[in-house]
Design a protein around this nucleic acid. Structure first.
Lengths: 225, 225
DNA sequence: CGAGTGCTTGATACCCCTCAATACGAGTGG
DNA sequence: CCACTCGTATTGAGGGGTATCAAGCACTCG
């Protein structure tokens, strides 16, 4: 039995210019899948209210705001990460796409183990993030973020020694993730670049050159000289 | 069939002095329950590895540390709150009792709804906490903390206009919860006291006198004059 | 009374924010 | 192809909010 239409954007990676894509729709026997354009706020369809959703490709941020507009980005999700739609209700948080992003609804029975694992990962990441926000210095924060993003967005999942990845976040988004200002983020990045720990020419493409050094900085073990 | 011994401390609330208690043990047909003395690190028995545990009475903190000892307290749990033992494994976090505390293991089937609700609450609180750590000023942090503690620890659950509660956390623990130093916390509390927003004579017993004012401060809506 | 622990308060330092100027890249139109 | 604009990033100067360091105080316990 057909469980609904699947909307799909065939997406061709941009070479640095604009992004051509084409809209199609197909039948999905069990799974449901959606493509989302960049800079969209995700509003899950009502029947996805309690669903868990896996990101097939792309990048999402989950964020929350104070009444006066100060924003805190709570997590950055890349390929394979799982988002819980229940967290998007009642103004608890909102999710936004930073590029063309493909989300696939998981089945709460057949994907049970993956969902449980994702739940624990979400909680564990929230804990690590709190430690970062409350107790790390700016350089430690930025270093931690770079390592995290490398793990999520580098080809081969960041296992290599000198991972290189697309930075879907702008400086102000990095800042809102790390509890800093965009100027401080920029200064840290320039500093790392000057010291040869990282490299970048375009602002949205970063290579980690000294992973162990960056790890040491992230954990507060580096000499601050 | 007996599922194990239950150790129980009959606990009489102190009037301001020491805490008399008596040790007994009884049979628990289905539920399992433990009493924990103050300042104990909770190490769940192996068969509780993935259990959810409800706090019947008392106060727990969940915390995490950096290699160099900087500590971040992630949550403060009072009566009725539910702790997930899976978060205590692999150095993800550790839980510590701040007073005599009673934990009861929940049944993953019969208490299913409560567990699911608690999971979402834990995540939601982690989000709110990140917003606090990353984007709030010290006065806003302390005000938020006081309101949270009033909700959890005031008699009648803090619904009243001028809730009064026992502060199980010391100044340095408040600081580690809020990403501040104990001096800054002390200054904020003294300031609130001076302005009549709160009142305290003993350092561990606080009364909120102007709840709406404190709410406004917590949300960053108060004039900073 | 003295020692110990936790809290308060003050003086100073410094990290990061704020404000401002400039640079850079992409897109647009002449 | 170049001038212009717009959005974002970088870099610098200065100030403010917390941290740090250091007394002194309040309370408990031996």
């Amino acid at each position: 039995m057909p469980s609904g239409l699947r909307f799909m954007l065939e997406h061709i990676e941009p070479a640095g210019g604009s992004v051509p894509f084409r809209l199609t729709d197909t039948q999905a026997p069990f799974r449901q899948e959606r493509w989302v354009a960049p800079q969209m706020t995700l509003v899950p369809p009502v029947q996805w209210r309690d669903a868990a959703v896996r990101i097939g490709r792309g990048c999402l941020i989950v964020s929350h705001e104070l009444p006066d507009g100060r924003r805190q980005i709570l997590d950055v999700l890349g390929q394979g990460r799982i988002l819980f739609c229940s967290m998007l209700a009642h103004g608890t948080a909102k999710a936004r796409s930073l590029t063309f992003t493909n989300v696939e609804r998981l089945d709460e029975h057949s994907d049970r183990d993956a969902i449980e694992e994702a739940r624990q990962l979400a909680m564990k990441r929230a804990y690590e993030h709190a430690l970062l926000l409350g107790r790390k210095k700016s350089t430690e924060k930025v270093a931690t973020a770079l390592l995290d993003l490398a793990d999520q967005f580098a080809c081969g999942n960041g296992g290599q020694m000198r991972p290189s990845f697309t930075l879907y976040l702008m400086r102000n988004e990095l800042a809102d993730w790390l509890g800093l200002t965009l100027e401080t983020v920029s200064r840290c990045l320039s500093d790392f670049k000057r010291k040869g720990v990282i490299a970048f020419e375009r602002t949205d493409r970063i290579t980690i050159r000294e992973k162990t050094a960056l790890r040491a900085i992230a954990d507060g073990l580096a000499p601050s000289t």
